[in-house]
Design a protein around this nucleic acid. Sequence first.
DNA 1: CATGAATGAGACTTCATTCAT
DNA 2: CATGAATGAAGTCTCATTCAT
Lengths: 215, 215, 215, 215
Amino acid sequence: MTPHSPKRDRILDAAERVFAQRGFFTAKVADIAKEAGVADGTIYLYFKSKDDLLISLFESRMERVNALLAAAVAGATTPREKLLAFVRAYVGMIADQPTAAEVLTIELRQSTKFMREYSAQRFGELLRLLAGVIAEGQASGEWSDAVPAPHAARMIWGMLDELALAWLLGRDAGARRGRKPPPSVDDDGRKFDIVRAADWVGALVTQGLERRSHV
Amino acid sequence: MTPHSPKRDRILDAAERVFAQRGFFTAKVADIAKEAGVADGTIYLYFKSKDDLLISLFESRMERVNALLAAAVAGATTPREKLLAFVRAYVGMIADQPTAAEVLTIELRQSTKFMREYSAQRFGELLRLLAGVIAEGQASGEWSDAVPAPHAARMIWGMLDELALAWLLGRDAGARRGRKPPPSVDDDGRKFDIVRAADWVGALVTQGLERRSHV
Amino acid sequence: MTPHSPKRDRILDAAERVFAQRGFFTAKVADIAKEAGVADGTIYLYFKSKDDLLISLFESRMERVNALLAAAVAGATTPREKLLAFVRAYVGMIADQPTAAEVLTIELRQSTKFMREYSAQRFGELLRLLAGVIAEGQASGEWSDAVPAPHAARMIWGMLDELALAWLLGRDAGARRGRKPPPSVDDDGRKFDIVRAADWVGALVTQGLERRSHV
Amino acid sequence: MTPHSPKRDRILDAAERVFAQRGFFTAKVADIAKEAGVADGTIYLYFKSKDDLLISLFESRMERVNALLAAAVAGATTPREKLLAFVRAYVGMIADQPTAAEVLTIELRQSTKFMREYSAQRFGELLRLLAGVIAEGQASGEWSDAVPAPHAARMIWGMLDELALAWLLGRDAGARRGRKPPPSVDDDGRKFDIVRAADWVGALVTQGLERRSHV
DNA sequence: CATGAATGAGACTTCATTCAT
DNA sequence: CATGAATGAAGTCTCATTCAT
């Protein structure tokens, strides 16, 4: 469906880096071209416009993310394990590909209203996957159904997203000061190990969802 | 410290509406001037630049939000009540002033990297308030300290933020189709009563944090 | 109907000169701005686009021409005199305002198909005036009605237009060689007195080529 | 002198169609390549530049036209018959090859100043042929020499050209509305039988508008 | 204080032309 | 001969900001 070519991919990769560094509106097409090592006009052989480039980048990265999360969930059996797998997979991706994460978490939600709705739609897949896991746990009686599954999914997603944002911004701040970004926890929550955060999310979410044995 | 005048406030209000509708980068200074009923140049008598206008708007609205939340928390006694008060106050504000909420939730985080960090810093106040409540509950033994308070605060904030975002975008979508936006719940989570959502957050969070009576 | 201001007029005058010299497509907006002594952006305060500038220029000049021709015709009594007045007025205008004439005769018919039709429509007024004169002469029995008035008008217009074109191009050619353009007749018809040409048109149109047997 | 090859001709034919449809400046080289069924670069194997393509097209078509007109004139004996033959041949060509005519009549005179002079020069051949016919008639005493032959030729050419233009534009307008273009006369002169127009030109040129008192 | 016409730097995008395959 | 992907110069237009009134 989406045409692939090495040059197209190089441009997407370059756009990812430039958008992550400068932001969508501030990034110039010429910057992306230079980063990709192509001429300005070449970009327009593969993308209709700067907006189209952003959308294509979004599609491309969301496909990856959704595939990754779906695979993680599929590899687990119980709802609790599926939920943990989801959370860990997402957090792991953030840690492994922070540039991609930054674009997904921050830049891709900028641009226009159109983009905002568009992205909302695309995140839908991810949210439905998560909601499915929760509904399954609720149906099995393991988890309380006090919170409707779709909204629970959204809230969990919000936790992950916020943690990702905090970590990415803290990372940026460090990077800008010229240091390597060594993930660490400080009391301001500005720098911390994103991977450990997966357990916190797990703790907060599972215990909240679990039906009490007694009471 | 910040100078006040009726015209300055009119400009801030206009900027809030225009940023909410068009987004920061897409909004033109001339649009804001027209919305405020002043000449283009007048804006520069009160603000140094478009960026300064955004930052000033952010300051102004965050002051309100922080004051509101602090008051809500101060009005409650136990950590649990304080947490609920926090959540309800925030959610109530979203419902009452959706335009302001849209700017805070969506637009103010766009713009530049500078702004992003700046806003992160300002959200700090809000996060510290929330973290304080949680730390208090953990100290009293009522809540588990499995999750460090600052990160728990961030996660809770993420839930609220995501719910706000979902509600605001769903609201936009409805408004665009020409209907009044009557808050309602649908299974896609696209439209729902944001006020009820406060209880979901409460349920998910408090039960997750509470130490088990028996195990 | 059309807004007027000294600056707008200065831009129109500059555009006239630049279009006449470089041609519509070759002329750069920056050239016109420089010629008018304004900044590039200023042009867009008065005209929506380069196309709009061309169309506005066309409107402006055609108004002048149509008014001039209508006045000339109104000042004469018999159809023959009206026809001569029309021809002389047009030819006189060419001689007096060659730059304006060049734009009308040459440049304004370029640009897009849209413009071509648009201009066809605007020349309609001129053609109807002329056709009216001819129809009047035919109705009075003075002139033969072998050729339908509208088409006779078109043919006469074609003569005038071609003469204007030939004269203007000959003028250009001279001007380019750095000489003053002294109107003169050469055997190639490349340079000649455009004012005398009015009589030729008069002679050809009223009497044709055939030598009269009598009179 | 000019190299010939089937591919070169296919490109010229394609250029004719594309220029007629889009205009010289608006037409893209890529459009012409696609229309000709060749690669973009192939065009540059046969023509030095887009300008050269236009000039070559002009040369090619003018050769045809001049040959056609010369043949028509050569086939007649008296000046009057030669003149009528010239007019009829030209008008017939318009009717038979409207696309070629459109390019000659409209597009080829656009482009640059250079082209305009160039074309003026090339039309010279056609004009000299016509002027020769008129001079012959004047020399024989059949026609008045009130109008110098070269200018009479130009005026006659102007009539033909204007009729051609009117007919071609009317044709376009019809075609654009999705109908077949059936040549017809309407009182606005917008659509009419171009072939009949030849007689009008003949009548106007030889006899003028004045009704003959005696024969 | 207020105005709003004017500025001009700079961005996106197009497209004639080239050249390695 | 032919291809068509790549180039990059150049043009139109936007819009934050200024300043004379």
